[in-house]
Amino acid sequence: MSLLSTQGLTKAFGGLTAVSDVDFELPQGEIRALIGPNGAGKTTFVGLLCGRMAPSAGTVRFDGQDISRLAAHERIRLGIAYTFQITSVFARLSAHENVALAVRRRGGDAVREVPEALQRVGLRDRAGDLAGDLSYGHQRLLEIAMGLAQKPRLLILDEPTQGLADSEIDAFCALVRGLAPETTVLLIEHNMSVVMRVAQKITVLNFGAVLAEGAPEVVQADPAVQAAYLGGVEA
């Protein structure tokens, strides 16, 4: 059974339809990449999934429950975690406190679990630093640690590798692969090498609609996908 599914999910801003009638299924335990040219509606789509905005039409189901009417924080409490595309840490709190906020929300033990989560992204020795003083790459990793610390059933990562060094990207890929099958992952990513390395399946969005879906090799070879990317901003 699917952990997450959408039926006819649509979001229009005035005359512009950013997400159009998307049916989407994400089985439990899968690592799925969501790709598409700039402006394809990826961030809007995940925004609808976790309730940052209300859909114009359609439903979102999580674990068999219709969550379309739930507020964002209620969805997060059901076991969805979302890491922001634009780094969004608590700048004037320490790295430790940033993660502790994620741990305490689900009643976890911050003293034990925060160092663990920081360890997994390689930031354990920066626990005492103010988040705002960390380098951009480290802030991205902290963001991921906050996602992990929520122990989510579904982890939505919005362009997590942007701004990371190559070595950090390698560590990140290993980390994500290690999350399955307990954690289902939905990964929005521009870096195709990351996508090919970690994703079990790829969904391609274009003009707010699903253009293609399938195994990485199949999608990569799909002429329609190639055309969309060549016609888009980047290759």
């Binding site: 976790c50 409490r77 840490v89 608590f90 929300r105 906050m146």
Partner: peptide
């Protein structure tokens, strides 16, 4: 601590649940 988190970044606090 949550109050401080809201002061620092309300949207992030919401998206932590």
């Amino acid at each position: 601590k949550v109050l401080i988190a809201i002061r620092e970044n309300e949207e992030r606090a919401r998206m932590l649940g």
